[in-house]
Design a protein around this nucleic acid. Structure first.
Lengths: 211, 211
DNA sequence: GTCTATATGTGGATAGAC
DNA sequence: GTCTATCCACATATAGAC
């Protein structure tokens, strides 16, 4: 809005159309990675799916990696929205809500899970702007953990590994199923009893050297 | 050895040479996926690395996927050997040893981690023989869990998700580092206190419906 | 802004000489 | 058993007409 100038219409129809087309391209790209796997994305198919030819895409994205980057950013905005709702709750209820929503978000789209939470595309690194979205999301959840007393060192990393690990196994071993998804509550039980144990603070920070 | 027949030398020099070359090819392939990522493997580079041309590889492997398949099998044999040593111990010591060795095995080679524990190569599925190796490995650890009293439903899946999840985060966020690796002991503490809690058996099998 | 045509490159796989 | 030569399919990206 700051960029709009005197004498120009507030709503730039051209820019709007352009954004709509970019969104169409991204939708088609998501469809394709869901069908062919994250690495199977190719520009011809993306273009064909919206009635275009591959070269036309370059009017909207500078490269294939730029499309991946936009998908990465879009995915993290979706993730942020999903988690933000759950983080309106607090305490145990909040943690369970976050767990369920994060788990559902991950397993419902394996390709998106790979793009957002693993480094699986050779040569692709998210741009600083897109990467910042992931950092901000983690910061928000860190703050929520602090506000809710889940403040032990390593607690957040342990929790994200736990949920992400269950989702990863679900996706790798039984995509579309729910065997590991159903373990989410047990995982939260385990995490909660560990993190809220009296005198537990020293226990999980202690360095160990055995075996 | 059963296949050797009367009048034939026990050691078939030709077959030995052949196996040696196949091993050379696999070594080169491992080098390449470590350098270029699992998906970056290509036959020309593999061949060049051992002083061959790409077509010669077809004398030893029927396709690129066959190479991936042999790598998959080889990786699980290595994994089995590493875990078997740790499973000579028992109880908490054994569990810690398994955790440390599994974690080290996973993070020391991200490409191998991806190949063995995730489905990341479009179109590749391990052959039944190779897949059986992964099933057998899980069965052995399941038996070890039973022998050692970690028998609660879901315990094994929770444990593998926990260790695999930590390794995955380590690899995705800080390859070569040890931030998540150092959380392995805390994770085992958490798992042990959950699994050995008095009356805990009912708790972690209980179905939950909240949020 | 979209197209056709094409440059340019890669990579798996096969044929057939040696 | 290894090679050269090549096929074929595919894919990113660019040039330039419309």
């Amino acid at each position: 809005m700051i960029l709009s100038m005197v004498g120009m219409p507030i709503k730039d129809r051209k820019a709007e159309r352009r954004e709509a087309t970019k969104a169409e391209i991204l939708d088609a790209a998501w469809d394709l990675v869901r069908e062919q796997g994250l690495g199977g994305l190719n520009l011809r198919d993306v273009a064909a799916r919206i009635g275009m030819r591959a070269p036309s895409l370059y009017e909207y994205f500078a490269s294939k990696h730029a499309i991946y980057d936009a998908m990465f950013a879009q995915g993290y905005r979706q993730f942020a929205a999903v988690i933000a709702e759950a983080e309106e709750l607090s305490g145990e209820d909040g943690l369970r809500a976050v767990s369920h929503r994060a788990m559902a978000f991950m397993v419902e789209d394996p390709a998106r899970y790979q793009l957002l939470f693993h480094r699986t595309i050779p040569g692709f690194t998210p741009s600083p702007q897109s990467y910042a979205l992931s950092v901000q999301q983690l910061d928000r959840t860190r703050a929520w953990f602090d506000r809710n007393g889940f403040a032990a060192p390593g607690a957040l990393d342990l929790f994200t590994s736990l949920i992400g690990g269950l989702a990863g196994q679900q996706i790798a071993n039984e995509p579309g199923g729910d065997h590991w998804v159903r373990l989410a509550d047990a995982a939260v039980d385990m995490f909660l009893s560990y993190i809220t144990a009296a005198g537990g603070t020293a226990r999980h920070t202690r360095e160990r050297t055995r075996s």
